[in-house]
Design a protein around this nucleic acid. Structure first.
Lengths: 217, 217
DNA sequence: ATGTCAATAACCCATTTGGGGTATTTTATG
DNA sequence: CATAAAATACCCCAAATGGGTTATTGACAT
């Protein structure tokens, strides 16, 4: 028995995981009909992909999210460890925040929508293979919006005085009252008083609640 | 005295903040020479921009980061509140993580590099004005990498048992021992024991330290 | 000058937390 | 079946936390 390993430095080797026959076929035809690309395998569901894909030398996986059984995001999570050099591009109809963030946080490097034109899909595959993260600018806007939310303290925190904010930062680092006191050259009781005031302003009773309210996470 | 307010629904109104004369002029000529765009003002530094820009009706600001005096990111922060409907695009030579994240977290919606071609710059401005977040796919990759780091628990957490992980999640929400106990139908002492084991595995002494170690932030 | 706010500090007291044990039961796993 | 790991539970005890209260000081505005 012989095992042939496909190695072709000229072409970008692509695999497709997509349950809808027409779309899967169209993508394969598109990719195989274009110079510099080769689609070596297509899978109709996650389970099938997990069985046969891992041992192959794939540059880029086009992964649908909505699959029967295991979804594309979980499939990607399962594939990733076995193929660390393969780039995964989500290619789906979902353009909501949850799917986008979930996919990108779980290891996808590109995210395109199915309505993307054939030329742009090829462009995106090449981009991905060359180390970029292709995504339409609407998708990018969602991602940027996400970062902006994360970076901002809540409004309630704006009610805090400078000293209180300073002490809140120490709390976030896990300092004890007495450590904060030493750090700021004030008494432990004063630290406690400040923290008490912080809790009143934020309407919380404990350190962790305060941190959760102050830095949304 | 009459005040003329420029309102032109056909054109995208652009302002430029850029200290290098040649680049500033080139951008203005590019924008004014293109259908559908109009550059109504250019500024050579942040201070000048802050004085005169706020009262005008601008769709898009092209902002350099490296300016003499106040930098472009601080300038943007100062401008934002006064012009909430204006989209800001950073247009700079910096492609390092710090500048990118700082700019996007602080309110920029687009981020392009100065080596972007004229046609792409116009495309990006239109994109931005239509609600997208234009950025090159290298920049996007940085942003995606950032999200992937944030979302991942540290390796140490993988040593925890299922029950321990479950309890750690309650800790993160700020639950008291007894609340966790009630929630899981186990005794408070057992919760304490689990938490004690968690602290041993993570080499920490307090709740906050554990959370900081478990979910990098 | 009067009043408010921020920061400082102290006191009492109950609850919570966490370190050190030990022990039983349940669940995997060989 | 035997053994290990995980989950359960309880004990003692010291330290940390947080609620409530009162008081002094300096700064700043009315």
């Amino acid at each position: 028995m012989y095992i042939y390993i496909i190695m072709n430095e000229d072409k970008i080797i692509v695999s497709i995981v997509e349950d809808i026959d027409d779309i899967r076929d169209a993508l394969r035809v598109l990719i195989n009909g274009s110079d510099g690309f080769e689609c070596i395998h297509v899978y109709a569901d996650a389970e099938e992909a997990l069985e046969s894909m891992t041992k192959k030398d794939i540059n880029v996986v086009l992964m649908d999210i909505n699959l029967p059984g295991m979804d594309g995001i979980d499939c990607m999570k399962a594939l990733k460890p076995a193929m660390p050099n393969t780039q995964i591009m989500m290619c789906t109809v979902y353009d909501d925040d949850d799917h986008i963030f979930n996919a990108l946080q779980s290891g996808a490097s590109g995210y395109i929508l199915k309505r993307t034109s054939p030329a742009q899909i090829l462009e995106a595959i090449r981009d991905l293979h060359e180390g970029g993260s292709p995504m339409s600018s609407e998708i990018a806007r969602r991602v940027v919006g996400f970062m902006q939310k994360k970076g901002k303290p809540s409004k309630a925190v704006e009610m805090l005085t400078n000293r209180e904010t300073e002490i809140l930062d120490f709390l976030a680092k896990g300092y004890l009252y007495k450590e904060i006191a030493t750090e700021l050259y004030i008494s432990k009781e004063t630290v406690k008083k400040h923290i008490h005031n912080i809790y009143n302003k934020l309407h919380v009773q404990t350190r962790t609640e305060a941190l959760n309210k102050a830095f949304k996470r």
